[in-house]
Amino acid sequence: MSFLHADYRKCLDASEQVSWALSSVVPPDSRLDFSKPFMPEAMFLAHGLDSLTSDEKLKLNQIFGRAYGYLFYFVEAYIVAATMEHARAELYGDEHALRALLRFTEEEVKHQQLFLKFGDLFERDFGSAVGLTDSPQEVASYILSKSPMAVLLVTLHLEIITQAHYVDAIKGHTGLDPLFVSLFKHHWLEEAQHAKLDVLELEKLRMGAATEQIETAIKEYVEILDAFGGLLARQAALDVTSLEAAMGKAFPEETRTQIEHAQTRSYYRAFLWYGLTNSLFQEYLAERFPSLLAQCGELAARFGQGRL
């Protein structure tokens, strides 16, 4: 698969074929199975910590799953706002593009509702409160203050990681909570089209843009990743407190530090490193943003080690 030969009509057709209803994915009697982990080991780096018992690791894994779903809800807030603008710019223009972008927007709102429902189910049955980073509006506002090309590059990065996570780590993993797997399967089904639409919209902006505008977009893309990294680190710190609340105990400072570092690395790998090292993303950058591709190795190494 390559993003370089996408077109609006094919995205629209594919979107109609894979579309699903929220009520069928999360029926009213849905329950999460808290006897199972939510996140695959490949993404949950704290599974290797000797200082945690298996029960503690299971709880931390589920806390990670809760925050993982919430973070997608979080970023989709800005994606909805940005995509609405791209759709609006197509009024009286290309009908296929307009329909594809409107569906994209509608699907992102639906995904937000999906993750809200997941959050409700989690909070109902987990047994203790889980801390989540606040102010999605502030984050959306920060991202949208950057150039539209930078915003689209970040959106493409995020759409690609949702696919990579599902295909590489979640799909076919029978040991995970089946509802959690199903949520991310349905999320992935629709995000596959979104990544192609991002590329098509990026191309509209890139063509005719001055070299300085492209370089600014690249610089802002890195700035957004750094800011996102800060948010992820805050979430990792909250996870330690959430785990203590879930287990009804306080960990020694050394253990707290180990958990926080492992969680930070897990979040950085999931949301930052996975995108920067993805072969489809790199293929796209090689063709359209080669100077960003040249920075990917250094950025991936930095985020892969869990530091900004």
Binding site: E85, H86, A89, G93, P148, K204, L205, A209
Partner: peptide, 9 residues
């Protein structure tokens, strides 16, 4: 609509 297109650029 055209204004949004311009602002995106």
């Amino acid at each position: 609509s055209l204004k949004v297109m311009a602002l995106l650029r």
